[in-house]
Amino acid sequence: MMKLDSQKLLIGMANACITITELAEKSNVSRPALTKFTTGKSNPKPATIGKLAKALDVKVEDLIERGE
């Protein structure tokens, strides 16, 4: 199962110089959902992780936790 790494998501946002609101608009993911993802309260579906990666112009692998 893929698990979003909230720290990596925040780093991606910082690298892209965008806010949660801007990421919501670019990724078509709601702002409340993004807030849950960045605080680790919720884990998005793989398709949503894909949308976030595309909006940030990074690979999905750059946003998920590494398996052991």
Rank of each mutant, 00 (worst) to 15 (best):
M2A: 10
K3F: 09
K3Q: 15
K3H: 12
L4V: 02
L4Q: 00
D5T: 02
S6D: 02
Q7K: 13
K8G: 05
L10Y: 00
G12R: 01
M13C: 12
M13W: 00
M13K: 10
A14M: 12
A16G: 02
A16V: 02
C17R: 15
I18Y: 01
I20S: 11
I20T: 11
T21G: 14
T21K: 15
E22Q: 15
L23G: 01
L23M: 08
A24Q: 04
K26N: 12
K26L: 15
N28Y: 06
N28L: 07
V29M: 06
V29A: 06
V29C: 09
S30W: 00
S30C: 08
S30Y: 05
R31G: 02
P32S: 13
P32N: 11
P32M: 11
A33Q: 10
A33R: 05
L34R: 00
L34T: 00
T35D: 11
T35V: 14
T38A: 10
G40C: 07
A47M: 11
A47E: 14
T48G: 06
T48L: 03
L52P: 05
L52N: 00
L52R: 00
L52D: 00
A55L: 07
A55K: 03
D57R: 14
V58T: 10
K59Y: 11
V60N: 05
E61T: 13
E61F: 09
D62K: 09
D62N: 14
D62C: 09
L63I: 07
L63K: 04
I64G: 08
E65R: 14
E65P: 01
R66L: 15
G67E: 15
E68L: 14
